[in-house]
Design a protein around this nucleic acid. Sequence first.
DNA 1: AAGGAAGGCAACCGCCAACAA
DNA 2: ATTGTTGGCGGTTGCCTTCCT
Length: 295
Amino acid sequence: MRKPDLMANKDRMKDIIKLRKGLWSPDEDEKLIRYMLTNGQGCWSDIARNAGLQRCGKSCRLRWINYLRPDLKRGAFSSQEQHLIFHLHSIFGNRWSQIAARLPGRTDNEIKNFWNSTLKKRMKTNTSLNNSTDSSESKDVLSGIMPFNDHDIMNMSMDSSSSISSMQAMVLADQFDPFSLLVNNHCDMTNVSEIFTCMEDGHQANHGTLEANNKMGLGRDFSLPSLESRSIESDSVPIDVKSHNNHFNYGSFNNTDNIQGSKVEDLIGFANHGQGELYLENLMQDITSFPFLDF
DNA sequence: AAGGAAGGCAACCGCCAACAA
DNA sequence: ATTGTTGGCGGTTGCCTTCCT
């Protein structure tokens, strides 16, 4: 056992007593930035002390990671990023750090806040719609959010006969909101998988016919830089973006339970580091081919 | 214009795992 | 093997701003 260093503890207690909390002042920010740029990352409690900040190391770490880091992307999430967040959340659940690791320039805190506020907003919207006593009215309003009903969704997701399905068209036209499906219990994980497969296929179709779609007022601009210059690392498995394939694999999403109340790691089984981990690896390779991610 | 409600976001808290002594 | 420290993470809180009445 380590011998307790009484003097060090005394010093630490003195530090703790005068530690600041709450919002960071511009002066504190400047100190931390200057120190980090000069000395680089190290032990955060040392950084706090050496930078002359009356903050705990944890606080400094959080401030740097979430706000001061020079590579942070500020501003609202693009629709591409929103789609990706939704997709990644369907895989990782609330593992925000995992999601953030795949969105360059975004922090877990930022994504978490976005998810919580967006979901809250949409849940509220949908709840109020569901509570409406006039069913025909609510259906009309709902159709404004979701341009098709459950039956349509199932038909669309099952119909692979046409080269571009009606759902793909919806996706291309930005009229489809997968959030609504989950929030409203409109579909289970299998359906969501199908839908994202459609989205993926739709976007790929769009990729080649962007100009035509734009002329028709249909398409969004997905002509984005490729991801191939990036190398994404998961916690345990480095993922080589170059080796991606171009088709989403949701084969294991056969769980018919509703996503709400289910842990995603339970659904796809990556909590235990066996096959699930391998599956996750494959999934993540698929994700790196997400065609409409704007970096 | 004023006050309350809602939304957005930065920061804190508590837990856990890894590591060092 | 045990204990303390540190870093990382997700959940939560509370403040500030914007919107609505």
